[in-house]
């Protein structure tokens, strides 16, 4: 996980993903590994926005996925929403546990975030947004979910997701101007 790669198009390889999901549901470990390779970067990226233990948390998420995959019904699009619902629940549980224990909310960036100063700067600004706006932007832009999928994961209406996206982007735009962020700056 030292290097980074651009976000692949979500719709690419859909039939293949559907086949992998079906085979993994039937107990095919190789197909499950392919699914893991496809979705793990997104899960890791999503969890890193809310927890400093993103890698440990993602392992928990995949163990839950492996345990519940037999009962999953749907295609690759639904599978992606299902995965991030599990990830969101795991992150919520984890943050509650940290609050109970008294762990500081300070998030340590992973190496792959630190390696890119531009990414680090924008990620900091994104984390400075209200939690629901940050989550909406992460799910829509970083992960690439559709509005309906985001609404399903977060348990909100589609119009609410649109409003949250707009507010988040507006605030992010203001923060970028304040911080003097320039195109290609820091890279």
């Amino acid at each position: 996980m030292q290097n980074s790669e651009p976000n692949p198009d979500v719709s690419s390889g859909m039939p293949e993903l559907n086949r992998f999901i079906e085979e993994a549901r039937d107990g095919n470990d190789s197909s499950f590994e392919k699914l893991w390779r496809h979705y793990q970067p997104k899960v890791l990226r999503y969890l890193s926005m809310f927890s400093r233990d993103a890698e440990d948390l993602s392992s928990e998420v995949w163990i839950k996925i492996a345990g519940a995959l037999k009962n999953f019904v749907g295609d690759a699009s639904a599978f992606q929403g299902w995965i991030f619902t599990i990830a969101r629940n795991a992150a919520t549980d984890h943050s509650r546990k940290e609050k109970r224990i008294g762990v500081k909310a300070e998030i340590n960036e992973n190496d792959w975030v630190r390696s890119d100063s531009s990414l680090l700067e924008v990620t900091d600004l994104l984390k400075g947004l209200p939690a629901d706006q940050c989550e909406v932007i992460t799910l829509r832009i970083v992960i690439g979910l559709e509005i309906e999928q985001v609404a399903q994961v977060m348990g909100k209406s589609a119009s609410n997701i649109r409003v949250l996206s707009h507010r988040g982007l507006t605030q992010l735009n203001k923060d970028l101007v304040k911080s003097g962020y320039k195109r290609g700056g820091g890279q």
Binding site: P6, L44, W62, A66, D116, L119, I141, G144
Partner: peptide, 22 residues
């Protein structure tokens, strides 16, 4: 440009495996 920067995903290594298989 900022959104493109945050949309970069980490690349997992070839050695890494899922924590558990079905």
């Amino acid at each position: 440009q900022a959104l493109r920067a945050i949309s970069v995903l980490p690349k997992i290594s070839n050695i890494a495996m899922p924590p558990m298989y079905p």
